Amino acid sequence: MLAVKVPRQEAEKVRRKLIELGVLAKGYAVKREGEFILFPVTEPVEGFELVEADFGRLEKRPHSYREVVEVPKDVKPLLPSSFDIIGDIAIIEIPKELMEYGKAIGEAILKVHRHIKAVFAKGSKVSGEYRVRELIHLAGERRTETLHRENGIRLKLDVAKVYFSPRLATERMRIFQKTRPGEVVFDMFAGVGPYAVLLARKAKLVFACDINPWAIRYLEENIRLNKANNVVPILGDVRKVAGRLEADRIIMNLPKFADRFLREAMLSVKDGGVVHYYGFGPEEDLFSEHEAKIKAIARELGFKVEFLERRKVRPYAPRQFNIAIDFRVLK
């Protein structure tokens, strides 16, 4: 087979050039000969040394675990099309009809996604004061602690002991882009710090509160990991903290119950400051109920609110969405 022979130190530059020219042969492994690299090509290329060589075929890898999972054909349509990846741990939601095939599903995920080391199934809904769920081990390592990377930060956490959603990475970056240098931020339900640690890169100071001691333990570790020394971790009920500090920006990432803490948020934000509120809403009317509650609390406190942005964050359940409302508080 025709090949381009180049010194090893120039290999990456040449590879990109061959791709740009559209002549790099697909489906073959490159070959090394001493200090030279051989690239298979579909036609002669001017300006390069051309040689004849034999190349091995690359193994065609499946793109989805559903291509390799060993389950009866009649249940294959029930296989979930997606799952969460947190660090090197996969968490999948499996219908009851498929739970007996859980091990096969877990092993298929490990086979296709080599970077995943452990697979768990959701055993319950997120519940309780600490917002955690039961997890059922399917395959791989029997551990729940991992190191997750997103938006240029590292987050150590235990998926069985704290709440964390990788699906909010885009939303977290949206808030980061809105944050201005020198702001004071109050993250009311901080968890292990995905908002707090990220926003610390711009903010002057970030107060990060959570009632879960495991979340605060990991938050403290993530502050060290990311050198985010301007994050102040606070363990306890946010009601006891509210009003004792003033922030330019408030994060209310507790969509199921955030409306219960609106008073605390408004008492803690500066005049003209911004609140990022999260909730759940039905498809037919996503925002009205939440906005009515926001206005009512503001009136009780003698404040005014200015709505800045409303958006669907992600699907939550059939015909239900996780929503975000950004509003300014005028005192």
Rank of each mutant, 00 (worst) to 15 (best):
F48Q: 07
E49H: 07
E49W: 04
V51S: 08
V51N: 09
E52K: 15
A53P: 04
D54V: 10
D54K: 13
D54M: 11
F55P: 06
F55M: 12
F55T: 11
G56I: 07
R57D: 02
L58S: 03
E59W: 07
E59Y: 05
K60I: 09
K60W: 12
R61A: 12
R61S: 09
P62A: 14
P62D: 03
P62F: 02
Y65P: 02
Y65C: 01
Y65T: 00
E67F: 05
V68S: 13
V68I: 12
V69W: 15
E70W: 05
K73F: 08
D74M: 07
V75R: 06
K76I: 01
P77W: 13
P80H: 13
P80N: 11
P80M: 08
P80R: 12
S81C: 02
S81A: 08
S81G: 09
S82D: 10
S82I: 02
S82E: 14
F83G: 01
D84Q: 12
I85W: 11
I86L: 09
G87Q: 04
G87D: 01
D88K: 10
I89A: 03
I89F: 06
A90S: 02
A90T: 00
I91T: 04
I92A: 05
E93V: 04
E93Q: 13
E93Y: 12
E93A: 11
P95V: 05
P95Y: 13
K96R: 15
K96E: 15
K96M: 13
E97C: 08
L98V: 02
L98S: 06
M99I: 10
M99H: 10
Y101W: 15
G102P: 00
K103V: 05
K103H: 11
I105Y: 00
E107G: 04
E107P: 03
A108Y: 01
L110H: 11
K111Q: 15
K111F: 06
K111Y: 09
H115N: 14
H115A: 11
I116V: 14
I116G: 05
K117S: 11
K117P: 03
A118E: 00
V119S: 06
F120Y: 15
A121I: 01
K122F: 13
S124P: 02
S124W: 11
V126M: 15
V126G: 04
G128W: 08
E129C: 02
E129L: 14
Y130T: 03
Y130I: 07
Y130M: 07
R133S: 13
E134N: 09
L135N: 05
L135Q: 06
L135W: 05
I136F: 09
I136Q: 08
L138P: 00
E141K: 15
L147N: 07
L147H: 08
L147P: 01
H148W: 14
N151M: 06
N151D: 08
